[in-house]
């Protein structure tokens, strides 16, 4: 295994941990309507296959404990891990704990005898947490999706455009709080955009 010092999160350059460590009372305008964080590293696995085939569903369920969601723009697995996010009728993003390196191998193994696609994408996307009273408004500033509580709620997920980056939006709870999956190369841009869009609500960074 590589030495730990070699590892870098997509937003490591921004020094977010140091910002998160500042006590809230030391930040000017402590009222923070928008809370941002870089989620810790997770295993992300690209999964493609035919959800209509029982063998495919069963194989995935055997590894994850649930079948890949067949309903468009929904996530399976609740608020915990692993999760499977519907991206398209034959495409999901499976998210597991970073320590759980076995899943990609297990999925490949379970699906070895059928036509499916399993690929490790753990480094391909940064995951940014967006929460707080202003979170929904911030999302609306860059995204044409209807994120009103009647139209999009906990457990919903979709690929869409946020500002000038393609993202996967996954609403975790009613609060609301969201996980935003963005391609690694866009991560610094998106973070800067989110901070700018959140300015009028006050932005706080958490670990």
């Amino acid at each position: 295994m590589a030495d730990a010092y070699l590892r870098q999160s997509p937003l490591a350059h921004l020094g977010l941990a140091a910002r998160a460590a500042i006590p809230p009372e030391d930040i000017e305008g402590t009222e923070a309507g928008v809370v941002l964080c870089e989620r810790p590293a997770r295993h992300q696995i690209g999964l493609r296959g035919d959800a209509r085939r029982p063998a495919f569903r069963a194989a995935v369920k055997g590894v994850l404990g649930f079948a890949p969601p067949a309903k468009a723009t929904t996530a399976a697995g609740g608020t915990g891990l692993p999760r499977a996010l519907w991206l398209g009728p034959d495409e999901w993003l499976v998210v597991t704990d970073d320590d759980d390196a076995a899943t990609v191998a297990d999925l490949s193994e379970a699906l070895a005898r059928q036509h499916a696609h399993v690929v490790d994408l753990s480094d391909a996307r940064a995951v940014i947490g967006l929460a707080g009273a202003g979170a929904r408004d911030v999302l609306m500033k860059g995204c044409t999706l209807d994120v009103h509580r009647r139209a999009f709620g906990p457990g919903r997920c979709t690929r869409t455009l946020l500002a000038r980056a393609q993202v996967i939006v996954h609403q975790i709870t009613q609060a609301p709080d969201y996980d935003l999956y963005v391609q690694r190369s866009f991560a610094e841009y998106l973070w800067a955009w989110l901070e700018d869009a959140g300015t009028e609500y006050g932005v706080r960074v958490t670990a």
Binding site: H13, S185, A197
Partner: peptide, 18 residues
């Protein structure tokens, strides 16, 4: 809107950018 200055377009950076 906010598509001005540094945000006028998405800048894609590699892990070695900095």
């Amino acid at each position: 809107g906010r598509d001005v200055g540094a945000l006028s377009d998405a800048a894609r950076r590699t892990p070695m950018h900095h």
